[in-house]
Design a protein around this nucleic acid. Structure first.
Lengths: 353, 353
DNA sequence: TTGAAAGCGCTAACAA
DNA sequence: TTGTTAGCGCTTTCAA
């Protein structure tokens, strides 16, 4: 029974008493075919349980309707929502997602070597471990590529990024406005462009305001790494009372270490701010103040750019930056001004300066 | 430039001065080809950036090396880890994952209608919104199907499930052993077989021990629904002091409502137990005691069954049940006996009875 | 070990 | 509107 091979257009054609092309047309949107023929074909197809073989079709049409999506670890709380949204939007646009979960470590991932073997319609690279070299190779092989949160100044791959610089600057100003003077930050990995920009701009903004550079500890994007980084920061003689974590995942770690190991109350004794605004940050246990990466807009724009590429209508050198908002919750002290309540009841901070 | 079409075996053959078959053989494991020819082909292939077109290959070999994976929402903390592990194991076994994120609501999902159009090597259905009818249709079309945590007694689809009954019974006994007498539980949706079994067995175990049936509130698998359910439970005149949540996602909700809205300290004032042992349950903010779904074993077994099916070596009526452990953390009171420390330092409870 | 040739299931240009 | 025909890029007998 499981031996049975799927029905082919040929078989349907024979049963319906028409040609193979008629069958093809019956399953093609807007093809010229008479209602009568279509009905005959439909009946035969239903009887045989026929479905067009999309891989065979792609051979001819050069469209697989499959888009590759490469992401790093799904254990970063930001990504599950991103992938889910991507799946929704992509499928609305008629695409399926072929999932590649990369190691997250540097160097060539054997998985990614496989990428080109599938004639994917496009490639969405949301993994910092993917080199722009690989991306260029794909693009030059004719596969449209969009990279997310990964810009390489030496490359002209199409990119969509969150407003890393604006976000980091906003956070620095927010913390200064709340009266903080002793800063620390937990970095990811400098090879990751978003992480690098966030850290650098945060530092520069403080220095630019005449403050000393923040203490830096490397969390390397991992929860455990961030726990250790937080300990390092808080054990210092003149420990910071304001900590910026380059992403929410590490902010969750910092929040908990501060609370449970140092008996510090975030939002009162010290301020912790993240970057992502991952959904669980809104849970009462965290109340994490965080600069948002607006998943919906990001995904919408990424898919839009993919569509444009597919239609050969994308100019070169598109580097889109999507701004977020500083979502104000309870993990950081509040400045006297700049607070705003949005229509949906969420609070944000916008630099009044 | 992005117009360029990918190189074909034909072009490689011409450049290398060999036949198309030689090229094919150069890229086929264990084909009979001389080292000299292979070298010539490799050189030409590298020069042209040639990669075999896997879709074209699949037409002939009837193997796409693509497995479909359908899951419901990724916002349930259990699933990201499951999908990630699945991706790792599948890719080790040479498969890519085509991702289908289903609505989670009943009724035919248009996405799933597409399933059969891709000649997937197999289908892994980890979504309770997928009917076993659809699963049977796929299987009868020759696509091996494995369903996860979704058993339909009227169907003989291959299934892998967590030990829902054993887990629920263990939790009931654990709570009784800790001295609880007033129970409540938060259900998912009865259409979901795992949810139904967990709730029913929990209830039956208590009744079987001569205790009154637990109060039940429907959380419908959503965080907000579980918050509301918890409020309902805790507002009762004789509120339960032991709450079993059918999954961790809802337990996180219960934990936070108890703590922040009712000023109850989980583990002391009341006990909350979940089911999944999702990674963040181990975070200090939660310390959620929970019966584990052992992701690694589950995934390993699922992929194993898929492989057996592919090799036509799978008997009918395989219904595998994979036991977990009751991971003891701080959200529930401890019984006097039955506690065990595992080699990795984690604590579990096993029924001493 | 190699090449020629047939064909996997489909679409699309062309002719009728 | 319909059928015929020629491929899409690959693998795989079959002979050489």
């Amino acid at each position: 029974m499981s031996q049975k091979r799927a029905a082919t257009a040929e078989q349907v054609a024979r049963l319906a008493g028409v040609s193979r092309s008629a069958v093809s047309r019956a399953f093609t949107e807007g093809a010229s075919i008479s209602p009568a023929t279509r009905a005959k074909v439909s009946r035969a197809a239903r009887k045989l349980g026929y479905r067009p073989n999309l891989f065979a079709r792609s051979l001819k049409t050069r469209r697989s309707n499959i888009v590759g999506l490469a992401v790093t670890a799904l254990d970063n709380q930001f990504y599950p929502g991103f992938v889910q949204r991507m799946s929704e939007v992509a499928s609305t646009a008629g695409y399926r997602l072929l999932l590649f979960i990369t190691h997250g470590i540097e160097g060539p991932d054997p998985l990614l070597e496989e990428l080109l073997k599938y004639r994917l319609d496009a490639l969405i690279l949301a993994s910092s471990s993917v080199s722009s070299k690989l991306a260029e190779e794909c693009r030059d092989a004719g596969v449209p590529v969009v990279m997310f949160n990964n810009v390489d100044p030496d490359s002209n791959i199409t990119t969509v990024t969150s407003a890393d610089a604006l976000g980091a600057r906003t956070i620095a100003r927010f913390l200064m406005a709340a009266g903080h003077r002793r800063f620390g930050y937990i970095s990811g990995m400098d090879a990751d462009s978003s992480s690098y920009v966030r850290g650098t701009v945060f530092t520069d903004t403080l220095i630019g305001a005449g403050l000393p550079a923040p203490a830096r500890a490397a969390g390397n994007f991992s929860f455990d790494g961030a726990c250790e980084a937080t300990r390092t920061l808080l054990r210092q003689p003149d420990a910071p009372d304001a900590i910026f974590c380059i992403n929410d995942q590490m902010a969750f770690a910092a929040l908990q270490v501060a609370r449970h190991e140092f008996a510090l109350q975030p939002g009162t004794d010290l301020s912790i701010v993240g970057f992502d605004s991952a959904p669980i940050g809104a849970w009462p246990s965290f109340g994490l103040t965080s600069y948002s990466q607006p998943t919906e807009r990001l995904v919408a724009r990424i898919v839009e750019l993919v569509s444009l590429s597919l239609a050969q209508q994308l100019p070169r050198d598109v580097h889109e930056v999507i701004p977020g908002e500083l979502m104000v919750r309870s993990s950081a002290r509040l400045p006297a001004t700049g607070l705003l309540e949005l229509a949906d009841g969420q609070r944000v901070w916008r630099d009044p300066g």
